[in-house]
């Protein structure tokens, strides 16, 4: 028995590994050589991997944690794979609309994503974990930042929405350069939920957005995104001057400023208002 073990050890120590490369070339190495080559190979692959992720705006902290790396290498997202082509060719026109909108710069982009993408994102979003949030200002359910989602569709969405290509598109439309990063979280407003008037100002927030994924809402159901006029003397909001009933696959962008007072009106139906919201940071 002991002799057999020693034989195994000797075999393991002297075992030769064969690497084949190009078409007809090959070399034979022992276990030490094999480990050295594997190490070199893994380093090169890992380097390419990290470069790819950096290119796709995966945050640096997640690069240090191998367990947070996506399992599949992805190519840089393209705008055409996601966005309605109607919005890709007229950034100047959209920018004029954005800058001249009242009561503060904003833009409503209907049917913003390709229909299949919007449906996929909605399906994935509903599967996220939702937490009730209550404060003086709001009552709704929210997801964690979608950056931490484990759902591949949600990861793909976040990957695209935070990509440089997309941030540059939004920067062009809003004439706000540069937009360096994003926040993104899902919100569900059920019957009795609301978000009261506030201006969204917080350091770094430049452009606020809401991607509405709600289906089947009418004005009588509540849940409108309302914009307020502001009293120039007091700086406080006065009356609602624009209202947007939730509509599937509509992206609303607005500039965060001392005038950007808005609210989500109370939902008064048993249907749910579902959206992804957040900010582009400068």
């Amino acid at each position: 028995m002991g002799g057999e073990e020693r034989k195994e050890e000797n075999y393991a120590y002297t075992k030769k590994y064969t690497f084949r490369f190009l078409r007809h070339s090959q070399c034979h190495v022992d276990a030490v050589g094999y480990r050295a080559i594997r190490l070199l190979f893994d380093s090169v692959i890992s380097g390419i991997y990290k470069l790819s992720l950096k290119h796709n705006n995966v945050p640096p902290e997640s690069l240090n944690n191998p367990f947070s790396l996506p399992l599949i290498m992805t190519l840089p997202p393209t705008l055409a794979a996601w966005v309605n082509p109607a919005y890709l060719h007229q950034p100047e026109h959209l920018c004029r609309q954005f800058l001249t909108a009242k009561p503060f710069p904003h833009l409503v982009l209907r049917d913003f994503f390709l229909p299949q993408k919007a449906e996929e994102v909605l399906r994935a979003l509903t599967k996220e974990q939702w937490t009730p949030k209550h404060a003086d200002l709001f009552s709704f359910q929210q997801t964690h930042d979608l950056q931490s989602s484990r759902n591949p569709i949600m990861q793909e969405y976040y990957h695209f929405f935070s990509s440089k290509a997309f941030r540059d598109l939004i920067a062009s439309i809003t004439n706000t350069h540069p937009l360096r990063s994003i926040d993104a979280a899902g919100q569900i407003y059920s019957s009795g939920d609301y978000l009261l008037p506030h201006d969204d100002r917080l350091e770094g927030r430049k452009i606020a957005y809401v991607l509405n994924l709600t289906k089947g809402f009418a004005a009588r159901d509540g849940g409108q995104l309302d914009f307020f006029a502001v009293n120039p003397k007091t700086g406080h909001p006065t009356a609602i001057v624009r209202s947007f009933t939730p509509r599937f696959n509509t992206l609303i962008l607005f500039k965060v400023s001392p005038r950007s007072f808005h609210q989500v009106r109370e939902v008064i139906t048993d249907k749910q208002r579902i959206s992804i919201g957040g900010w582009f940071h400068g």
Binding site: S191, Y194, L196
Partner: peptide, 9 residues
């Protein structure tokens, strides 16, 4: 202190 929003119910 604050007074919580009164909803439609």
């Amino acid at each position: 202190h604050f007074t919580k929003y009164v909803d439609h119910k």
